[in-house]
């Protein structure tokens, strides 16, 4: 599903360059829940963005379903993301003026599928958001927002979910619910790469790798 080979990424930060990711190799197979744990600034988020086809590394390769997204033109790369990757963020990143329903449906802007409307309906019901259907993100609890973001990530039936601290802003119950949904996703054959510094979250992962200063130090 996802293969990362010897990926390195360096940021120019003033006069001193910062090695965000150094020679990282990692793979996530269908049905696998992999956690990446490490302190803030260790390169977890950079790894996640690179894995999702949003940030090209300086060296190394990323393969999504056997295809290197950075070898594709921007439109094809966007199409690959729309088809195969679902993102979940700590800040939810819901579109503030769209209702729960419209936020869940927003990936259909990128990928037109016949069953999008029906699947949105099913996901909203599944995540217990039916009563919030026409509510804006500002009117939701943090748990509801994250469930909305999760439903949005699942609309196009991606092969992998890349989750960046999805429970970072949630209370314990909401965090548990989100992690259980992610686990459920892997049971259905999906892959999850979860970036977190939360031990509780990484506890749901079948496999956890630890990063420090851009390197994988424990696998």
């Amino acid at each position: 599903m996802l293969e990362i080979h010897n990926l390195s990424k360096r940021y120019a930060h003033g006069d001193e360059p910062v090695d965000a990711v150094v020679d990282v190799s990692l793979s996530v197979t269908p049905g696998e829940f992999v956690g990446v744990q490490g302190p803030s600034g260790c390169g977890k988020s950079t790894l996640l963005l690179a894995a999702g086809g949003l940030l090209a590394g300086d060296s190394g390769h990323v393969l999504l379903d056997g295809q290197d997204p950075y070898e594709l033109d921007p439109d094809a790369r966007a199409a690959l993301r729309a088809r195969r990757v679902g993102f979940v963020f700590q800040q939810f990143h819901l579109v503030p003026y769209l209702s729960v329903l419209d936020n869940v449906l927003s990936p259909s802007l990128a990928l037109k599928t016949d069953g999008a409307a029906g699947r949105a309906k099913m996901l909203i019901e599944h995540f217990g958001l039916t009563h919030r259907l026409h509510h804006k993100p500002g009117e939701l609890s943090t748990g509801e927002r994250q469930r909305t973001a999760l439903a949005r990530a699942l609309l196009n039936e991606p092969g992998i979910i890349l989750a960046d601290e999805p429970t970072g802003n949630l209370d314990a119950d909401s965090a548990r619910a989100v992690l259980e949904y992610l686990t459920e996703f892997t049971r259905d054959g999906g892959a999850v790469l979860l970036v977190t510094h939360d031990d509780r979250a990484s506890g749901y992962a079948q496999r956890t790798v630890r990063m420090r200063a851009g390197r994988i130090v424990e696998e």
Partner: peptide
Amino acid sequence: ATEIGILRAIGVRGRK
């Protein structure tokens, strides 16, 4: 900006 970022992340093309 954030909205644009998330729309791009979920696969919406720049032209759109």
